[in-house]
Computed example of a mutant assay.
Amino acid sequence: MAAIEIRLPVARKLVVQSLAQGSDKHLVAPGDTITTDTGYMRGHGTYMGDEKLVASVAGAVERVNKLICVKALKTRYNGEVGDIVVGRVTEVQQKRWKVETNARLDSVLLLSSMNLPGGELRRRSAEDELAMRDYLQEGDLISAEVQAVFSDGAVSLHTRSLKYGKLGQGVLVQVSPSLVKRQKTHFHDLPCGASVILGNNGFIWIYPTPEQKDEEAGGFVTNLEPVSLHDREVISRLRNCILALVAQKLMLYDTSIVYCYEASLPHQIKDVLKPEVMQEIVLETRQRLLELEG
């Protein structure tokens, strides 16, 4: 006989009143009037109609001085210079790689925009061009920084810093880019023993924290040693916690992930994705974040 799991309904916990007030945002749907004041400038996600500013996407209204834009709740990645992204190489072309970064168009990583293995600085030769597939090939995951955004919205990447480059062993989680909070740094070594790269494009990379930072390889030598059971459990729990935060529409950054991880410790890893457990740990995370802010 196969084991059958039965879950009984439980009463929902009430959210703290101050928490509900603190998360209040001006949400609009396509066609909603944002303002009739003609003194405002039109930003992304808006258009002018009948002398009033109207939303063209569903999302939260953001005002910067006289500029009004609507940040979509669920959207493709729109690149900005300086963003940290995680992407997957889809094609090797002449002097460049095509990279999937959750944007409307494939991003481009030029051969001249990357450090050669060993951090060597010199002009790229024909031999380097022939050896491109030795550095990166189809299916490889990389971390990079946005160098430029073209007029059609395509993104040009670079990996000139030794902290960027090819990613080794870990887990990739894909979320909506609107849920990743912009911060000064997106590389975090968490106290639980794992590290995360929170890509602005919604690709999140979870991997075991390296014991020593090897910066001589230039980011192209991957560590393929076996990962310990403890590290795999930590990575699995972190992945489930991130999925729980995404399901409850909570912003992703290092503090929220650590709080959610600590709230999930009384539960088994596989139970974190159960709806009632997910709601319980995310509610505790929300309240801890509110206490931290207040």
Rank of each mutant, 00 (worst) to 15 (best):
V86A: 04
V175G: 00
Q248G: 06
K95E: 14
L290K: 06
I235N: 01
E100D: 15
Q268F: 10
V258G: 03
M251H: 13
H230N: 05
A148H: 13
D37Y: 08
E291G: 04
T185V: 12
T159R: 03
E233I: 06
T285S: 00
R42V: 11
I281F: 00
E293H: 13
T185C: 07
G79L: 04
H230A: 09
K166A: 02
I4H: 12
E100Y: 13
V70H: 10
L19R: 04
R124W: 11
K213G: 07
K166D: 01
Y253A: 02
V61D: 11
R122Q: 11
L245Y: 02
G294H: 15
K166C: 02
G31P: 04
D214A: 04
K66L: 10
R76L: 14
L73E: 10
T222C: 11
L289Q: 13
R288A: 05
V28K: 02
M48R: 08
H230M: 06
L27N: 11
P30R: 06
T36Q: 02
L105V: 08
A20C: 10
R182K: 15
V85Q: 09
I68E: 10
S236N: 03
V61C: 08
D83A: 15
V258L: 09
S161D: 05
G118L: 08
L111H: 12
V85K: 08
I68S: 08
A131I: 08
K270S: 08
S56N: 12
K74G: 14
N200V: 04
V54R: 00
S112F: 10
H158E: 01
I68K: 06
Q279D: 08
V81Q: 04
R76D: 14
F150D: 15
I84S: 01
P117M: 06
D128A: 04
M114P: 09
A29R: 09
R160W: 06
L238Q: 00
L229I: 15
L229K: 15
L73V: 13
G119M: 12
S151P: 07
K213C: 09
T33F: 04
S264T: 05
L116F: 14
V180W: 09
Q137W: 15
K274P: 01
L157Q: 00
I235D: 01
A244N: 03
E215L: 15
T255L: 15
L172R: 07
A20P: 02
S264A: 14
S125Q: 06
R239P: 06
G294V: 14
L111Q: 10
A58M: 15
R133C: 02
I235Y: 01
A126M: 13
L73F: 15
T285D: 00
K71W: 14
K163M: 12
V272D: 02
S107M: 10
L130N: 11
L252S: 09
